[in-house]
Nucleic acid binder design. Sequence first.
DNA 1: GGACCTTTTTGCAGTCACTGCAAGTTTGCA
DNA 2: TGCAAACTTGCAGTGACTGCAAAAAGGTCC
Lengths: 202, 202
Amino acid sequence: MNQPGESLRDRKKRRTRAALERATVRLAAERGYDHVTVEEIAAEADVSVRTFFNYFASKDEALIGADPEAGPRMAERITSAADEVPPFEAYRSSVLAEITEELNNARDLWLLRKEVLMQRPDLLVRAFASSAESEQLLANAVAARAGLAESDLYPRLVVAAGSAAFRCAVTRWADDDSLSLGVLVAEAFDAFGTGLAHAPRR
Amino acid sequence: MNQPGESLRDRKKRRTRAALERATVRLAAERGYDHVTVEEIAAEADVSVRTFFNYFASKDEALIGADPEAGPRMAERITSAADEVPPFEAYRSSVLAEITEELNNARDLWLLRKEVLMQRPDLLVRAFASSAESEQLLANAVAARAGLAESDLYPRLVVAAGSAAFRCAVTRWADDDSLSLGVLVAEAFDAFGTGLAHAPRR
DNA sequence: GGACCTTTTTGCAGTCACTGCAAGTTTGCA
DNA sequence: TGCAAACTTGCAGTGACTGCAAAAAGGTCC
């Protein structure tokens, strides 16, 4: 008896994951990332500590709430873009799509994360460590589209630029949120696209 | 009675640090990063575990052997470059100088690190987390040179591009070391300089 | 060489993230 | 209802990392 979309089990899992993510972000914003133990987070979300680690490989991961399906989803978008779209543009728009969707669904969480990341910018860098695997996936998709070998430097650079764009946009946004995060990410992407050799004039 | 350069104490410290770094890299290459405990590393270097943590904030840091003075040194090089050098170029050459020097002094260590990083690419990403502080320093130097506010996006992007260039070059080099690491880093920098919008043809 | 101060090393006790394993519980399905 | 697969949980254990206070050097002055 299975709705094509979601079984009871699936719904419960999604809710538990979301609860853990929320609890992590909320508590970390409230009293500082390392004054919160996984034990407290689990209690807040009403599950055991062991269950926390069934959902997230680390406390860091829970703070960022990296969606395990985001990687594959973006890779899919890249490979299925229209033929005439150049590889960088395909990558760029697949990342932007993912991010705007994320921001629409969880803007409140990002506002809290901002508080945490302002205190501990290194956490944002660490967050990307866990996505090293997805990066490989995306790089391969970009390589295929560009007609380059998977070992080529270019696809790696494109993907790394994406991480960097997001990372810089977030830190900039944490400093001063007069511009929306989405806009900042787009701007960062453009800069990587056209090259950093010439500094902008303001 | 102090040679202007180095006292006995200073020499001992440098030697201990180097021994810990070497021990970490050697053992990790030999039997896998997480089959080596800090206890074993400390024993190999003939110091106590507590002393290990007086030198390095984490096992990760010891593996990469991040020089705490590298950040300031590069920042200094950036600000003291000739006036007509554009900011990106100043940054680029200060990073390349640092890297080539490092590679000349410790080529053997990098060959061992390669082994470790091939198994665990995420360690390279994590390594940059600890340098979040230096990044700020460098970004400010670039901002000053570009005549931009410290809050501007551009300097952050330049610095992040540097990390990304290094990171991609290392992973590429680990896959296939027919090109030297120094050359790969330079190539990656160039790509960021001229922009990623157009994929290269090979 | 010895007294005295500063820096470094060390041991120890403690916290906490994270893991494997072996039940126990819940859900999906016939 | 009954069985199998998927989840949750507790438990015991490992190992990274920290603060503290005492021991060991190193540096300096006489």
